[in-house]
């Protein structure tokens, strides 16, 4: 664990401890289950955007991709009655395609990532609203709803994507945590153990330097955007099953900002070239924890955004000062020798 990850982990523990001390309902099985579930959902998106941020790019379309995937999935299941397995594959292909288009526009047409994904944010959001005529709909039938084909398959998929695994009598582990575990390990392995991960860090630090060393930087960047949209797609499916009703205008709104915030708080630099999956996952948990604590401690929910903003700002500032301090010490050491 590097210093940054250690720092963010300390922050997690501190907020956790304070809230636990001030409100004994905080460590209830129910609250913990919820916290783990929502942290996992956020962390999956955040891992995706971390890849893009490591390349020095940005993806603003994540929330809209989450929304569109959830809407399209619900639409296929409820309105079209398509085979659920097939529906999931279609939506995943759609998110991969979105990432591919982003990557191609950024590397081949040389449009800035901010612009490409900002337009994506607008386009995917409106596509979802148009497809459903802006009507809310759920992928999973409510008890009295008979309007679904393949009810059995849908229910078993619901168990997979939004189920619970009994650990003790009172505590059940939400299945999204398992998705996070698998995806997080895969992402960390990719970044730290494969040549492509190394290439991503290299090009994020110095794209020309990487290119001059024979790395196909365009392809690597495209891969990063594909991974990002893929993770947003997975998050979209998880959210769809989690929510009783997907709202085309709202589901996933602003999620890109949470994901970016988690990535930055977790140690990614928007200048590129730096980042750790574990840090990002912990940071996503911190963000959810802050929400939960605000509720638990009876602080006005109108202050949610403000507190979140201040914590992220302080975290990033602390990191920056620490970095400067250690750079100065390294330089001083250099001078002595």
């Amino acid at each position: 664990m590097n210093k940054n990850t250690l720092g963010i982990f300390g922050l997690l523990v501190a907020i956790f401890a304070i809230t636990a001390l001030l409100n004994d309902k905080f460590i209830s099985a129910y609250n913990m289950q919820n916290l783990i579930k929502w942290s996992s959902l956020y962390a999956v998106m955040s891992i995706g955007v971390a890849f893009v941020i490591i390349t020095g790019g940005i993806d603003l379309s994540i929330g809209s991709v989450v929304g569109l995937v959830a809407v399209v999935l619900a639409y296929q299941l409820k309105v079209k009655g398509i085979d659920p397995g097939q529906a999931i594959i279609t939506t995943m292909c759609m998110s991969l395609l979105i990432g591919l288009i982003h990557g191609l526009l950024i590397t081949k047409a040389k449009i800035q990532p901010f612009v490409v994904t900002l337009c994506g944010l607008l386009i995917y959001r409106s596509l979802g609203r148009w497809l459903t005529d802006n009507q809310s709909l759920g992928p999973v039938p409510l008890e009295d709803d008979k309007g679904y084909a393949n009810i059995d398959t849908i229910n078993s998929l619901d168990q997979i994507f939004s189920g619970k695994i009994a650990i003790t009598d009172s505590f059940n582990l939400p299945t999204p945590a398992l998705f996070l575990l698998a995806l997080g390990i895969a992402a960390a392995l990719f970044l730290n153990r494969t040549i492509w991960g190394r290439y991503l860090f290299a090009l994020g630090n110095n794209e020309d330097g990487a290119r001059y060393s024979g790395i196909n930087t365009d392809n690597m960047k495209i891969i990063a955007y594909v991974i990002c949209s893929f993770m947003a797609g997975i998050a979209g499916i998880l959210f769809a099953f989690e929510l009783d009703s997907v709202q085309p205008a709202q589901t996933g709104e602003f999620y890109e900002l949470y994901a970016i915030a988690a990535a930055v708080l977790g140690g990614c630099s928007l200048r590129g070239g730096v980042g750790s999956i574990l840090g990002v996952v912990i940071a996503a948990a911190v963000i959810r924890l802050i929400y939960n604590s605000i509720n638990m401690l009876g602080i006005s929910t109108h202050l949610e955004f403000g507190i979140l903003g201040i914590v992220i700002l302080l975290g990033v500032m602390a990191d920056e000062f620490l970095k400067r301090y250690s750079a100065q010490r390294a330089a001083a050491k250099q001078k002595e020798s």
Partner: peptide, 8 residues
Amino acid sequence: LHGLVLPM
């Protein structure tokens, strides 16, 4: 700029 990735 081109030869090295300095932070690495």
